[in-house]
Design a protein around this nucleic acid. Structure first.
Length: 617
DNA sequence: ATAGGGTTAG
């Protein structure tokens, strides 16, 4: 590997802009990095009492490093043993080989270890090169220490190295993953303005990905077209990123359009491209299209991998088709793919959705254990949720308390699930206690909109509206920005507790908060009007939905049809039933039973009789 | 540099 050493200073204008990043960073220069104690995992071979008896010869070492830089070592100790031996070689192996060792550690996601090894290399006087620096910078970014990464950049420049496009791509990705897209953008524009580097396809892909993750699909597409204009050809990753983004925005047909476009341009989709699309199609239950993509993959000789299979297992599980999910696992094992914790979590969730929590527990305790797959916090959270939904919150709490014993830390999602479980059983005293003592006082937790929604809904359903409203004020003053779901919860809770006017005023003021009602919000308000006998208002709201780019779904129709019955608008109900069926929706259980109840009532309204004649067999 | 799993309102 060439050492790009130079005595020339960086262009001064760029240094000015660079100083923007470096000043204010509370970190020492690289020569005296302050390492956290957990960075110092590396020590001499004293930590390795059983060194490998047959250590590779020179040629073997090269072979070994080449392989492990691509796959990672099986065990951290093995990697450290190799490093230790390398240090004792005379002459010392080349930087290239040390760089491969670092790459292996990165593959193993042992970033702090890699940083320690890098530091050790510096201390031992090994001449590091720009690639090694880049690896270390990348590790700092993965450790969420972009500040250290920038200090190391400064050190790299001070030592006379030219940071390359990889360096800057790494830093841009670091800034984006640390949720600082503005700094990333600034770095990108400065790099172009001061002609420090020519952005490559990875630079664009990184930024496009950042934009997609932040729901700025339009800007992402703009950048996508811009890069083409600048003569930077998009590749499979570019298209996969955009396709995934479109799928997550539920714009699957546009995503399929991009698949078509890339194929026409001769850019070949890979398993990632197809997996994103299959996920998008599964979300819409477009099974035929899923099968078509799977056979297209087959034709192109692209094999589904553990991601693809997990997507399918998840989709089957959500459809209640648990046997098919099990079959997929069987198939993947037979075709040599190893299910992992994500695969089994999807399966467990499938069982829980069917109410078969004990079967889910058996997956964790038997199948996973047998296959040597270690359950994670999510595995337990899925089970906890399963038990909560079955109103077995005490069993859920048992599992919750088991987590630390398994070396796992519950997340906010785990806590939210338990909180919901208590409220679901009407055990609001324990819910409040849990929230106050276990959640609010827990510094490690960041309460989110899910938490507030669960709490508000729980309080309202248990008829503590005043408390709910006062909590809502508390959350506002705590700086949490309520989303549409929070308002939906309040609108529903208020109207069901006799505060229709308050609910209506919240609904009407949504635009002032910069929020737009969605189909659930509309449906709840329609339900509220119907319940209070304000059928005309309900109908008016229903009609106005479309103009606001919101389309009624099966629940909306069912709510309004039941509203018709309550308000004796039988003719109106007939029209709506037709309309609902024309849209491919059907009556739900509660509408159907109301229809049947109408048969037995003494109600002699001819319109009702006509309705029954038309819609009952 | 890109893909998979859990928690909120009708």
């Amino acid at each position: 590997m060439m050492m790009k050493k130079t005595n020339k200073l960086m262009s001064s204008s760029f240094l000015v802009s660079l100083s923007h990043f470096i000043t204010g960073i509370t970190c020492c220069p690289p020569a005296s990095f302050q390492f956290h104690s957990h960075f110092l995992l590396f020590s001499t071979n004293k930590s390795n009492p059983n060194p490998k008896p047959h250590f590779p010869t020179h040629a073997n070492l090269q072979q070994l490093l080449l392989e492990k830089s691509k796959t990672g070592f099986d065990k951290l100790d093995d990697a450290l043993a190799v490093f230790d031996k390398m240090l004792h070689r005379k002459p010392l192996p080349s930087v290239f080989q040390f760089a491969q060792l670092l790459a292996a550690l990165v593959k193993m996601k042992r970033y702090s270890v890699a940083v320690s090894v890098f530091k050790d290399m510096c201390v031992k006087g090994i001449h590091v090169d720009i690639v090694t620096f880049n690896t270390a910078i990348n590790c700092f970014c993965h450790l969420n220490r972009v500040d250290y990464a920038f200090s190391l950049l400064a050190g790299t420049i001070k030592r006379g190295f030219h940071p390359d496009v990889v360096t800057y791509n790494t830093l841009i990705r670091g800034l984006i993953s640390q949720d600082d897209p503005a700094e990333a953008q600034l770095l990108f524009t400065n790099l172009i303005r001061f002609k420090v580097i020519q952005p490559d396809v990875v630079t664009y892909n990184t930024i496009i990905n950042g934009l997609c993750k932040r729901a700025h699909a339009c800007t992402a597409v703009t950048l996508f077209r811009y890069m083409e204009k600048k003569g930077c050809k998009p590749n499979t990753v570019t298209y996969s990123t955009l396709i995934d983004c479109l799928c997550k925005l539920r714009l699957v047909d546009q995503a399929l359009g991009l698949l078509h476009e890339m194929t026409k341009k001769g850019i070949t989709p890979d398993v990632i491209t197809y997996s994103s699309l299959i996920q998008g199609l599964c979300d819409f239950n477009r099974w035929q299209d899923v099968n078509q993509l799977l056979s297209e993959m087959n034709t192109r000789n692209i094999s589904p991998d553990v991601h693809t299979f997990s997507i399918l297992i998840d989709a089957y599980g959500k459809e209640g088709m648990i046997n098919d999910a099990e079959d997929v696992i069987e198939f993947m094992i037979q075709s040599g793919q190893h299910p992992d914790v994500v695969t089994y979590n999807a399966l467990m969730d499938g069982y829980c959705l069917r109410g078969e929590v004990d079967k889910a527990l058996a997956v964790l305790e038997t199948t996973m254990k047998r296959r040597g797959i270690v359950p994670d916090t999510l595995s337990y959270t899925i089970l906890i949720n399963g038990y909560c939904k079955k109103r077995k919150v005490d069993r859920a709490v048992d599992l919750f308390q088991q987590l630390p014993r398994e070396g796992l830390t519950p997340t906010i999602e785990t806590y939210n699930t338990i909180l919901q479980g208590y409220f679901l059983m009407g055990r609001h005293v324990e819910a409040r206690k849990f929230f106050k003592e276990k959640m609010m006082l827990n510094k490690a937790l960041t309460l989110n909109n899910y938490t507030c929604s669960i709490l508000l809904n729980g309080l309202c359903q248990n008829h503590f509206v005043v408390e709910a409203l006062s909590f809502f004020d508390t959350m506002l003053s705590a700086g949490l920005i309520p989303n549409i779901c929070i308002y939906g919860t309040l609108i529903d809770g208020l109207s069901k507790n006799g505060h229709l006017e308050k609910a209506r005023s919240l609904f009407d003021n949504l635009p002032l908060k910069g929020l737009r009602p969605n189909v659930k919000t509309y449906t709840m308000m329609i339900q509220a009007y119907c319940h209070d006998g304000l059928f005309d208002e309900a109908k008016e709201l229903f009609v106005s939905m479309e103009a606001n780019d919101c389309f009624p779904n099966d629940v909306t129709y069912n709510v309004l049809i039941r509203g018709c019955f309550h308000n004796k608008k039988y003719k109106e109900a007939g029209v709506l039933i037709h309309e609902m069926r024309a849209h491919g929706f059907s009556s739900d259980a509660s509408t159907a039973s109301m229809f049947l109840d109408g048969l037995e009532s003494k109600e002699q309204d001819p319109a009702l009789l006509a309705l029954q004649k038309e819609f009952l067999p």
